[in-house]
C-alpha cells in the first residue's frame, strides 16, 4: 500500500478534522467580526480614558503571537479558576485576537471617513448609534473588504495552532496520521490542499462582493 492509499483509507479522519476546523473558523471569525465592529463603535467620539485603554488592549493583542494567547487561555486561565474546554478556548482566542485586528482595520478606514457625511446624518436627526449602523459601518466594511479577505486567511491559518492545545482540527488529523504511519510529507500536503482550497474560495467570494460594490458606483463616489 502506498502512502497515498493509507491516507485515502484515513479520509474520514481528515474530513472530521476539516469540518471541525471549518466550525471553529466559521464561529470564531463571525464573532471576531462582530467584536471588531463593536470595538469600532466604542472608539467613536471624543478621546477618553476608556477609549485609550481599548486602543492599548487592541494593540497589545495585535502584537501578541497568537500561540501565546491560545496557551494563556487554555493553560493559564485554569490557574485563575476558569477552566475552558480546548475547543472553546480556541474559538475564544481566535475571536478576540482577530476581533482586535478587525477593529484596527476598520479604525484605519474610519479615520478617513468623510466628515461631511456625518454632518449630513447629524443634520437629519441621526443619533450616534443609528448613524453608525446605517451609514458608517456598511461603507467601512465595503471599503476594507480586501483587508477583511486577508484577515480571513490569517484566521484560517491560525486555527492550525489549536493543535497544540489539543483541539482535534485539521492539522491535528494530519499530525496524528503522520505520527501513526510515519508519512509526514503526504499527510501535510493533503492538509495544505484543504487550507488552500478554502482560502481560494474566500478570495473569490470577496472579489464577487467587490463587483457588487462597483456596480453600485461605490468605488467612484
Amino acid at each position: 500500500m502506498s502512502n497515498w492509499d493509507i491516507l485515502w483509507q484515513a479520509r474520514d479522519e481528515f474530513w472530521t478534522g476539516f469540518l471541525n476546523t471549518m466550525q471553529i473558523f466559521g464561529l470564531s471569525i463571525t464573532a471576531a467580526f462582530v467584536i471588531g465592529c463593536f470595538m469600532l463603535y466604542l472608539l467613536e467620539g471624543r478621546p477618553s480614558v476608556g477609549k485609550l485603554s481599548l486602543r492599548v488592549f487592541i494593540d497589545g493583542m495585535r502584537m501578541l503571537p497568537f500561540l501565546m494567547l491560545a496557551y494563556l487561555l487554555y493553560y493559564g486561565l485554569p490557574t485563575l479558576g476558569v477552566r475552558l474546554d480546548a475547543w472553546w478556548a480556541g474559538v475564544g482566542a481566535l475571536a478576540v485576537y482577530h476581533g482586535c485586528y478587525f477593529a484596527e482595520i476598520f479604525r484605519g478606514s474610519r479615520l478617513v471617513f468623510p466628515q461631511g457625511q456625518i454632518e449630513a446624518a447629524q443634520a437629519h436627526g441621526f443619533t450616534r448609534a443609528r448613524m453608525f449602523v446605517r451609514l458608517i459601518l456598511p461603507q467601512i466594511v465595503m471599503q476594507t473588504r480586501p483587508l477583511i479577505g486577508n484577515q480571513l486567511i490569517y484566521a484560517l491559518k491560525d486555527t492550525a495552532f489549536l493543535v497544540i492545545i489539543t483541539v482535534r482540527e485539521l492539522t491535528a488529523a494530519a499530525n496524528s496520521l503522520s505520527g501513526t504511519y510515519f508519512i509526514p510529507t503526504e499527510a501535510f500536503l493533503v492538509v495544505i490542499g484543504f487550507y488552500w482550497a478554502v482560502s481560494i474560495a474566500m478570495e473569490i467570494i470577496i472579489k464577487q462582493c467587490g463587483r457588487f460594490g462597483a456596480r453600485r458606483g461605490l468605488d467612484h463616489a
Binding site: G116, A120, Q122, H124, T127, L135, Q139, A221
Partner: peptide, 24 residues
Amino acid sequence: NARALARVRAQTGMVFQSFNLWPH
C-alpha cells in the same frame, strides 16, 4: 441629551456645499 438634540435637528433640513450624499 443626544436624543432630544437629534429630534430638534430633524426639524431643520440642511443642504451642504459638498452635497454629502451617502454613497452606499
